[in-house]
Amino acid sequence: MNPADQLNDLFRSFRISSWRWECQGDYAVDEAALRRWRNGQPDDPARKAPWLAYIRDITSRGVRFERVRMLTEPLTEYLRWLLEQTQSNIDAGEDIRWITESQAHELRAPDYDFYLFDDERVAIMRFGTDKLLADLEVSTDPAVVDEHRRYRDLVWPAAVRHADYYATRSP
């Protein structure tokens, strides 16, 4: 199965919580959206509308959708853009926090992205040189799940809420 389809199946099947560790400095991105940002133009609200509707729907039912994004040192262009694009996700119900690369290394956070669904399934994400999702390894093995819960439990309390980070960052 295509890894994007596999991930979409996971998004449709979790019931209680989703937690993501996001640690790449760059991901594949809508180049038109990035170009608009570079030119100082506002984002097209239609671009994220389906995702934001999905988040509003699940969080309105009490499902938690949380993520921590690692900030490279120095920040990549992608992360500078993402910092300005995140508030709409927060407004829709996501709880997004930030952690510096040096803090993540101190905590021995993994160097790969993953989702932890309902504290019972882990989806380890691997990206290709084109920055697109190339592979998704899903596990319900209790040892693998416990390991990724420990990562979450180390990183989550150390990460800074988006509003707090954004309010204090340098322009």
Results as ranks from 00 to 15, higher is better:
residue 154 L to E: 05
residue 47 R to Y: 13
residue 82 L to H: 01
residue 160 V to F: 08
residue 131 K to P: 00
residue 70 M to W: 02
residue 121 R to H: 11
residue 14 F to R: 01
residue 1 M to R: 14
residue 54 Y to E: 03
residue 68 V to P: 01
residue 109 A to R: 02
residue 10 L to N: 00
residue 18 S to T: 04
residue 10 L to C: 03
residue 162 H to T: 02
residue 51 W to N: 04
residue 6 Q to D: 08
residue 109 A to N: 03
residue 69 R to Y: 02
residue 86 T to N: 05
residue 54 Y to P: 00
residue 48 K to H: 11
residue 50 P to V: 12
residue 166 Y to C: 02
residue 154 L to K: 15
residue 155 V to E: 01
residue 30 D to C: 13
residue 121 R to V: 10
residue 98 W to C: 00
residue 37 W to V: 05
residue 116 L to P: 02
residue 134 A to G: 13
residue 161 R to Q: 11
residue 84 E to N: 12
residue 49 A to N: 09
residue 48 K to D: 10
residue 163 A to L: 06
residue 67 R to C: 01
residue 21 W to F: 09
residue 99 I to M: 06
residue 124 I to E: 09
residue 48 K to C: 07
residue 32 A to S: 14
residue 1 M to C: 09
residue 154 L to T: 08
residue 155 V to M: 10
residue 83 L to R: 02
residue 81 W to S: 03
residue 26 D to E: 15
residue 149 R to N: 06
residue 143 A to G: 08
residue 11 F to N: 01
residue 150 R to E: 11
residue 3 P to T: 07
residue 116 L to E: 03
residue 127 F to M: 06
residue 117 F to Y: 07
residue 15 R to Q: 09
residue 14 F to K: 02
residue 21 W to D: 00
residue 144 V to H: 13
residue 107 L to V: 12
residue 144 V to M: 14
residue 169 R to C: 03
residue 115 Y to T: 02
residue 25 G to R: 03
residue 11 F to Q: 02
residue 12 R to T: 05
residue 10 L to A: 03
residue 71 L to F: 01
residue 149 R to Y: 06
residue 46 A to C: 07
residue 162 H to N: 04
residue 125 M to L: 15
residue 139 S to K: 10
residue 168 T to W: 06
residue 4 A to E: 11
residue 167 A to T: 05
residue 2 N to T: 07
residue 147 E to L: 15
residue 149 R to L: 14
residue 73 E to Y: 05
residue 136 L to P: 00
residue 68 V to K: 00
residue 46 A to I: 08
residue 131 K to N: 12
residue 38 R to C: 07
residue 122 V to A: 02
residue 51 W to L: 12
residue 14 F to H: 00
residue 84 E to R: 13
residue 86 T to P: 02
residue 68 V to C: 01
residue 114 F to W: 10
residue 49 A to I: 06
residue 166 Y to R: 09
residue 30 D to R: 15
residue 143 A to N: 13
residue 65 F to Q: 03
residue 22 E to W: 08
residue 114 F to H: 03
residue 124 I to Q: 11
residue 2 N to W: 04
residue 125 M to R: 06
residue 3 P to S: 06
residue 145 V to S: 09
residue 70 M to H: 01
residue 48 K to F: 13
residue 130 D to I: 13
residue 70 M to R: 10
residue 107 L to C: 09
residue 91 D to H: 07
residue 143 A to I: 10
residue 96 I to A: 04
residue 36 R to P: 01
residue 22 E to S: 13
residue 128 G to I: 06
residue 163 A to H: 08
residue 137 E to Q: 15
residue 60 S to N: 06
residue 125 M to K: 08
residue 145 V to C: 12
residue 35 R to Y: 09
residue 96 I to L: 11
residue 150 R to W: 11
residue 35 R to Q: 14
residue 122 V to K: 00
residue 27 Y to R: 10
residue 153 D to E: 14
residue 25 G to E: 04
residue 141 D to V: 12
residue 16 I to N: 11
residue 85 Q to K: 12
residue 56 R to M: 04
residue 107 L to K: 13
residue 168 T to N: 07
residue 10 L to E: 00
residue 149 R to P: 04
residue 112 Y to H: 15
residue 152 R to G: 05
residue 56 R to S: 05
residue 135 D to E: 15
residue 91 D to K: 09
residue 104 A to L: 07
residue 131 K to D: 01
residue 118 D to Q: 06
residue 68 V to A: 01
residue 12 R to N: 09
residue 8 N to W: 11
